[in-house]
Design a protein around this nucleic acid. Structure first.
Lengths: 173, 173, 173, 173
DNA sequence: TATGAATGAGTATTCATTCAT
DNA sequence: GATGAATGAATACTCATTCAT
């Protein structure tokens, strides 16, 4: 991958995350990336292609983030790791996650099946710990963490900081 | 308020909720509303003004929805009512709520202070019931309900139906 | 003539004079006149009709202004009166004259034949006073006075004040 | 500067000069220039920017035209050259000058300081020739020449042709 | 690979004008 | 006479995309 292709990708990522796909022009992306507008189309065919390239990267990053909990064998540890995730998003990755959440609202890019394995693993952990409704607990916890992530991405880590221990103790992990 | 002004408002509401503010053209809004494009600007000055008129309506509707829990005096009942809210969104109001959540992502329209009184009331209820960290419980519950609402708006009520009793029993209300 | 018709006329006059016919919208005229936009069309058929009504008034005012020199019988006095005209434009009539000069640039409204009688009278005066090229002197003087008027309308009377005596002495009148 | 940029400039110049800035649409300019409407905005940002680019050219041309009288050392010659200017406007430059005079009426583009050096030079010439009120003579002559120019641009050179010698002899140059 | 000029379809907005009341 | 809602055509301007270099 060429140098400039990456520059375009990261300029587009931050702009899409900040302002949304439709609100960002290819002109703006090219300006921020410091390249000509034409180059975007040489590398990505069209604007949508650029978005898809980014979405691909985002999905891979998500998989990386959930890899540790998927390979964990202790149920308590699975829950603990999962709860910790939102609280350890690195600031330089905020745009990554912001885009991820923004895209959830564009039906086209909402692929809930990608979280299937994570949901299954959590369900397994709750069942193992004898929770009465493990599938529901799993769904519930993921939704809570979604909300927490959104708060953190919106207002920064500080206001939600104490929630982590609160959640960990709520699940006794 | 004239007939056509309302038609524009509801056409715009549904389109903004479905496709997002930036993805919808005033031409499309006018077409769906069955009015001339110019009329949008006579009534709302510009596209943003139209959005703001809708946002105003949305905010008022939100207040209405939370009014009962704000005037409730029994703490258990406060929690019960609050949990019930997402499960009783009327289908014809889905667009209303979809837009509300979409706008949370546009920093400009994200006004967390609007939920202050709701948060305070919930905190009061949890404190009354001797929860160890009432403020955090309140924040936590609201975030859970946000997530639940998002699920329902995205996938319909069915997949989340059982969550209601699950939540009610979790809080013993 | 109704009250409101006059209000429209004077609002339009000042706006046309300030910003030019094409730069002024009927909405703006109606706003300044404090009437509904529709009323303009009830009274003047269309925007051009409004301009023509104003032009008619302007022309009448011009005639009034030149009436004294046309009926004067002393040649020196004819020249003296003519030279004095630009220096005695009343400030509340500036818009009148500004429009007059602006319209000279719109071929449609440039009617040089209206100045024929003035030109003839001046020529007569110069011939009477034995100027070698009376017709040319007349044309020349009128052009000078046009320029002086433009200066006064643009920058006010002050900077051109001393020009009056300068001109009078130049023609020994 | 590309070929098409110049085509736009000259199409706009002639249209602005003929019909006035506000009466000309960017569509019309693009049509006459034989380019896409969008190109106007790529080159000049907006319609006003296009006007300003033209104004800049006009101002430079004006400076060129007055350069010879500014560098002349004989006072008679200074006056002679100055008087000659309006009578030697080349027909292909009429639009240039028409726009110049039209813009004098748009306060925004009326910059009298541009003529300061010309006025000073003329004043010097008249003082040198012992005219009693040299500054006023200079102002007066420039206004006369303004008027003459306007006549020529409006009605062509023919009707004003004889004025040149009339003026030259009036000043004995 | 990379640019920058150029385009054509689209977009928000304005405007003169009409019409029912 | 007077208003205010409504329109349709036009207008300034944007945008994704193409293409010659």
């Amino acid at each position: 991958l060429s140098d400039k292709k990456d520059t375009i990708l990261s300029a587009a990522l931050s702009l899409f995350a900040e302002e949304g796909y439709d609100a960002v022009s290819t002109y703006k992306i090219a300006s921020r990336a410091g390249v000509s507008e034409g180059l975007i189309f040489r590398h990505f065919e069209n604007k949508k292609g650029l978005l898809e390239a980014i979405v691909f990267d985002v999905e891979q990053r998500i998989q990386q983030v959930f890899a540790p909990m998927l390979s964990e064998t202790s149920p308590e540890e699975v829950i603990r790791i999962t709860i910790s995730i939102p609280f350890h998003i690195e600031p330089q990755e905020y745009d990554f996650w912001r885009l991820q959440f923004k895209l959830k609202w564009q039906t086209e890019y909402n692929k809930p099946e990608k979280m299937k394995s994570v949901l299954d693993k959590l369900t397994w952990a709750f069942r193992y710990l004898h929770y009465p409704a493990p599938a529901m607990e799993a769904q519930f916890l993921l939704q809570v963490l979604d909300s927490v992530s959104i708060s953190i991405l919106r207002d920064g880590l500080e206001p939600s900081k104490k929630l982590k221990n609160f959640l960990l103790s709520k699940y006794s992990v």
